[in-house]
Amino acid sequence: MCDTCGCNVTPGNAELLKPGGKLSKTTGGHEAIGVLQGLLHENDHTAAHNREHFRKHGVLAVNLMSSPGAGKTSLLEATIEALKEELSMAVIEGDLETENDADRIRRHGVEAVQITTGSACHLDAHMVHEALHRLDLASLDIVFIENVGNLVCPASFDLGQQSNVTLLSVTEGDDKPAKYPVMFRASDLVLLSKSDLLPVLGDFSPDTARHHLQQLANPAPVYEVSARNGSGMKHWLHWLLHEMSQLEQQSGAIHPVVETAGPATCLVLP
């Protein structure tokens, strides 16, 4: 939605706002201004700016969201190990306190910018924008934004990402999509993390989780992954590479095509 082209004036409300319309004057004679602007207008503006930064540099930006402790950092560590020879990655870490997660990422030789939000329960576009100034986007292929562990607030703030990925660990309830519809409706991919624990838990049904996601009219794929034993990781990595190719198609010829006599290089996934 925007407040410049009028796309947020719908057939349902346009009549009310016309001069002489029901909402154009007030009983007290005060001036009534129809605004129809998103409440997070400033955030959305900065998010659009971030998105343009990413697009211009052909960088895939992935916003990772989950409850605290669902395994976002472990997933990133395993992802970095699998892809670091082929792709250049960086991580923006959001936590209320500590640099612990950023330190874990840095140990894998990947740049990490830690945002400590203090008491804020989510990242917003302004925080990500500041973090972007500390990264050399021109040298990167993927930026992972590890949001604050929280299934509520992060869903309301656009950061400028291309994709939302939500982790639901199998130690949580399989009805989480029904309990947190805003976040799961906004997810482009759902990862059922810690899937190596499924046999010992017994009460988490991946099919039930899929069913609840479908009830939100969300066609997003759902993969079972374990960063610990690597099972299912190839589906997630394939999805990432697919998102990258989509981004390249959307942005046109950002990466120069170099013709070589030899066979085309391709990524070999574990």
Binding site: M1, G28, E31, G34, V35, L39
Partner: peptide, 26 residues
């Protein structure tokens, strides 16, 4: 968010996700 009529889940949201400043009196 499935269709209340036929139960299919291929639906599009028409309203319910608004977060808007609608009108101000000054």
């Amino acid at each position: 968010l499935v269709c209340a009529n036929c139960g299919d889940w291929h639906t599009t949201l028409l309203s319910g996700d608004e977060l808007q400043l609608f009108r101000v009196e000054l």
